[in-house]
Amino acid sequence: MSSLQLPILWAMLCLYVGAFVLDVYQFFQSNEKVKKAAVIVTVLAVAVNGILVVLRGILIQGLPLNNGFEFGMCFALAIGIIYLILLKKFALSQIGAFIMPISIALSCWLLNLDMSVNPLNPSLRSYWLSFHVTAAVIAYGTFAISFGLAIAYLLREQGKLQKMPEAEVLDEVSYKMVFVGMPFLTIMLITGAVWAEYAWGTFWSWDPKETFALVTWLVYAIYLHIRLMRGWRGKKTAILSIIGFVAVIFTFFGVSYLLPGLHSYIS
């Protein structure tokens, strides 16, 4: 069954690419048929992504949240599910053109990772891992969507891509994503600290990954404060959302490859 992972991953990548092409095509040829096709292909991509997660769960006989490969496919699934919820809740067609590239990039990265099933290190055999990584997956998923919407907002505000939803809608939904993701990021930091206390005897060891996760939290804390208390909207908050997601990406990829520490097992 392990050998099924690669073809499913390829299918997932092709479907995400297909959804992206259809989303981009809507900017040139906007009609209901193309729109519907884009949604159907996205649903299929997310379903295949879900199948991959379930298959991996069967292979490891547990929640697939233990290493970079498993986190990456859950991260892509979270982005897909949140995007589909947004599609249903708000009139946000064509936004997929800014979200799908993240899923495509994640799928390409997954293709380069070791997919074999290896026994877990005893320090990773903790139920705190499930809470910690699940919270991370949801938080990062919402921030990825907020990032896509922020890019779309900046382009829409400059008068480009007029066929997209109103700039105010993009701005509001981007903010909502941060608002939903921030408590999950807080829970991720807390569960990580509790786990570290039980496993390593210290809540916080200023390991590069945990430090950059805290930096990410601080960036989004600034975002929420200036938005909710100062009433800043639009361009400034869109830029902050982009900075926040750059911090997320650096926490996940940059730190894993450039600044290894206690979390280096994920790569």
Partner: peptide, 27 residues
């Protein structure tokens, strides 16, 4: 709030620099 935002930004900057340079003494 202004002070809070400056402090949050200062902390984010300080931690990021310390993590990149691996400077644990800063803490």
């Amino acid at each position: 709030l202004k002070l809070a935002i400056y402090l949050l930004a200062a902390m984010a900057g300080l931690y990021a620099v310390a993590a990149v340079y691996g400077d644990m003494e800063i803490y």
